[in-house]
Simulated assay, not measured.
Amino acid sequence: MIPRLLSASIERTMKFFPVTFVGGPRQAGKTTTLKHLFPDLPYASLENPDTLLFAETDPRRFLGSFKGSAILDEAQRVPKLFSYLQGLVDNDKALRFILSGSQNYLMMERITQSLAGRVGLQTLLPFGYEELPKKIRENMSAEEWALKGAYPPVYDRDIPPEMFYQNYLETYLERDVRQLVKIGDFVRFSQFVKLCAGRAGQILNMSDLARDADISVNTVKSWFSILETSYIVFRLSPYYKNFNKRLVKSPKLYFFDTGLLCYLLGIHKEEQLHVHYLYGNIMENMLMAELYKRHTHRGQRPSFYFLRDSNGNEIDLVVEKSGQLRLIELKAAKTFNTRMFSGMANWKKVSDLSVSDSTVVYLGEQTFNTEHGNLVPWRPALTGELIT
């Protein structure tokens, strides 16, 4: 088993909250991680039909069968459990329950109703690049990492990425989507997911997406929410505080995993990736998702934004921390060029941003400190050696 960075945050959360919720996409390693961390705790999966029936018909006796603390997997399937958990943990301060689930919206909606103030929240995403053993990652190119993606079965069980993502997508459609909303046309929904893949790293325009998918804007919003809920995609919000100039205020779209993104785009080999018209977007998505995971797997809520004005001047990533802003550009280029810093230099001139530092992360190997900021290769950037 490859150790997960989030383990320390999960253990720390359990010290302060009687209930810990670990969310994340299917196959990200939640069950494996929790069983490894707490081998002495009883475990129950509510996807097991018998367990599900027991919990639904007699929740009090179900929880009592553990004689104390327990791990409950896919707990959102029995929402009435949360009310009973509230009573248990209020009456016995020593109890600790760990809930896990792959449907963020359903879980959070039900947790906030019954366990507010009693639950600590953590999110386990697919592997971060820094979590891979050094012997695996040191010989891996940026393109190979983007193509293979980060889901544990691709590494733990050596499943070919194309085979894994094909089955993952089919399973996702059958299990999660049917539970979340009634979608009559799964073929059309599958096409919608692929259309989203073609917009990775770009401004999210719901109207354009609705036109291309031949569905209503309201349907786009509903279906896109499903993708967010299931940890398939995330939005990057624009940063537009204290500006007078005209700024883009629509979010950008990113996928949590570029292996799935490449599969949706029909990219199965590195040679295809290198010549694909979305190569730059895919590699930017890979870098963005990795920086996002670096924060999330340390128990942090990433304060990530981007900047873009109506003329197309853009900063890929703005990280806000303690009132200071870090500007980060993500470049698919492998050769340093001074123009890489031009966007950040422009924004500093025309705004009153309080910037702590400026960094360009690129796919090359050399490190430079320039008058405009720091140039950081992708490997040390993703392992935290030169950027945090």
Rank of each mutant, 00 (worst) to 15 (best):
I136E: 07
V361I: 06
L287W: 02
S141I: 13
I387H: 15
D58F: 11
G323H: 06
T335F: 04
Q27T: 05
Q122L: 03
D214H: 11
G24M: 06
G128I: 03
S354C: 12
A70M: 02
L363T: 00
Q324E: 08
E365P: 03
N242A: 06
L72A: 03
M344R: 02
Y172W: 11
H295C: 15
R175P: 09
I10V: 10
Y305D: 14
Y84W: 13
R308T: 11
N242Y: 09
S310N: 09
L169P: 09
E131I: 05
L227N: 02
A8C: 13
V248I: 15
S356P: 11
Y172T: 10
Y279F: 14
I10P: 10
I328S: 02
I159D: 08
P25Q: 01
F16W: 04
S222E: 13
D309Y: 09
T229L: 02
K80C: 07
A70S: 09
S83W: 13
T171D: 12
I98T: 02
S141C: 07
N313K: 09
G198E: 02
L261A: 01
K221H: 08
S114W: 02
L375F: 04
N337R: 11
L115S: 01
E47R: 08
D212H: 10
N285M: 10
R12E: 01
L363F: 00
K269L: 09
T32E: 11
A333C: 07
R298N: 12
T32R: 13
T51V: 14
V78F: 06
I183V: 14
P302N: 03
A44H: 07
G259K: 05
R60S: 14
K249H: 14
Y362V: 00
A381K: 05
E290G: 04
P238C: 07
P160R: 15
L132A: 00
K30M: 01
L195A: 05
F368Y: 08
L307F: 02
I2D: 06
N346L: 05
